[in-house]
Amino acid sequence: MEQHATISAEGLTKIYEDGVCALDHVSFAVKPGEIFCLLGGNGAGKTTAINIFLGFIPPSQGVAKIHNVDIHRDPLEAKKYVSYLSDVVMLYPNFTARQNLDFFARLGGKHALTRDDYYTALRRVGLQEKAFEQKLKGFSKGMRQKVGLAIAIIKESPAIILDEPTSGLDPKAANEFQTTLLGLRAQGKAILMSTHDIFRAKEIADTVGIMNEGKMLAIKSRKELEHEDLEQLYLNYIHGKVAA
């Protein structure tokens, strides 16, 4: 596996207690300054892979590493180097956007941040100024997603994991989100993002991993995809028209 990968999976396998194989010897690597999109439909194994990377479930086989730390062996150490954003960001409704940011920043090891630092992060993700000190109770999904992204940014971790981050966002919000993500890539972050949005994946991914039924069918670089119809390629792979 790549030596400099910030996020890496080696033969990652997950078989649940009921015998369902959710991941079958999946391997990939995400280097600094790279956006890696896990592309697949429901039940492809994307979320299972992410859950293993976040230490929520142990792998049945294989190793998942963040910043070269085995997440299963030393989850607390590995999690220091990763930020996470889910498809539906749910935060503490009694806290304001800034208070939520403050709590999660401190959880992520950032203890000396000022109010200005929080405001800067919130501005960066495009949250309206008037919402900074408002309670999360009345926030829309898009607004919550922005705060979630600010949380991921402010931790300044080398790895960022995003689970279907743009699902349910309106086009404007999705576009703003994409812009921020590209900015993070430029900063050298290794970004692992699961999505079933083929167009978004083609647009921003440096590498696309096509998954189906727990298997990594193909890993294609941006260069390889330049002259390909990703949608057709994806369908070909999942229908078995192309050998994995």
Binding site: S86, V88, I161
Partner: peptide
């Protein structure tokens, strides 16, 4: 249920 548990445990929290 509120979804915050996952976010909390994505950090180095025992």
């Amino acid at each position: 249920e509120s979804g915050t548990l996952k976010l909390v445990f994505s950090n180095a929290v025992s």
